[in-house]
Write a protein that binds this DNA or RNA. Structure first.
Lengths: 192, 192
DNA sequence: GGCAATCCATACTCGTCCGTATGGTTACTG
DNA sequence: CAGTAACCATACGGACGAGTATGGATTGCC
């Protein structure tokens, strides 16, 4: 019942700090990323931190890069492996809608877009996802420009949903209502 | 060529501070709302501030309430005055898409949803707008639950667009492209 | 023109957080 | 079992921002 989630650890690595940083970002946002707070949470002091990282900024950078690398799930490859292109969109929507945990860091980063360090990361990640979405729409039968615009619309709806629902807790939607919303979204945004 | 935007002002009122606060929030976010910075921008010192407000928190509160009252444009009443219900949605979309300035505070507040003071304000404002949207969709012919879900989707797309485009500068979209996107959005999200 | 009330400046205190300096402790290695 | 490298604690310096104290300036009013 220590302050740390993993109480029995003797020595830490840089990766441990990065993971802890991402967890803290997901919980309280980028602004709450303070080295003394992190150290307390890990059961050590600042002395440890400044051995692994030159500065707080360096930790943020490392954590972001780590997230960008490993955070991009294999969802993409799994979806692309599906034989029927028209079946990919509904599957993608339902998947994303029901896996909330992996999106918490993205939602937190979305609120830190004034921070110079997160902007390029978010730009790259969002760009890749949008291109992926655009491809799916093209393979589902949309013309190139239509596919691009539909991808923009879909991704904007995704981002907005993140903000409105588990950052703001807007209309405390029930499970059944939520499922109905997802199906409505599929019906509205899927061609055909 | 002073530091202040309006150099020739002798005495300030509480409303002046609130307006300046909202301007600063729109420009640099809620986190940048510091009293000394604000004072510099207004050409005075902290001594002035603490006469008008008991604390920084009080200023934020007052500014948010001011924004909630006067920020809700008369767009709503203008749209509702339109005779043809089916013509309201395209008009609303085009309007919102081309008036960027009034949405800058909303976008900034969207990034401050971890702050306890902004959450209730944003909840109320977003709720009202969603209800407004839901009504329009119903009047355009959608069934009640369909109208609600479509309103959710539309509003999420709006919120997401704010984040992706003038917070992140995502794909530096051109004017023509943007107009095409808006029309695509109208075609996709408008019933019939 | 004098007197309050209003408004603002200056000069502090205090807490927080980043970063540094330095010495101690644990683990690895020959 | 040394000795060296990796890891961590303690203590400090300094920047920055909120809030307080107090006196000065300005405005409106009688």
């Amino acid at each position: 019942m220590n302050a740390s989630a993993k109480p029995e650890r003797t020595r830490l690595s840089a990766e441990d700090w990065e993971d802890a940083a991402l967890k803290l970002i997901a919980d309280q946002g980028v602004g709450a990323l303070a080295v003394e707070a992190l150290a307390r949470q890990l059961g050590v002091t600042k002395g440890s931190f400044y051995w692994h990282f030159r500065t707080r900024e360096a930790l943020l950078q490392a954590a972001l890069e780590r997230w960008e690398q490993y955070g991009e799930r294999e969802v993409i490859s799994q979806i692309e492996a599906m034989p029927d292109p028209r079946a990919r969109l509904p599957e993608l929507f339902r998947r994303v809608a029901h896996e909330i945990a992996p999106h918490r860091v993205y939602a937190a980063l979305l609120k830190a877009l004034d921070h110079p360090q997160v902007v390029p990361v978010m730009a790259r990640v969002s760009q890749r996802r949008m291109e992926f979405l655009t491809n799916i729409y093209r393979e589902a039968g949309l013309a190139p420009d239509e596919a691009l615009n539909r991808a923009r619309l879909t991704y904007a709806a995704y981002v907005g949903f993140l903000q409105l629902n588990f950052t703001l807790g807007l209309p405390r939607i029930s499970h059944e209502e939520f499922d109905a919303y997802v199906e409505h979204m599929i019906k509205t945004l899927t061609p055909g």
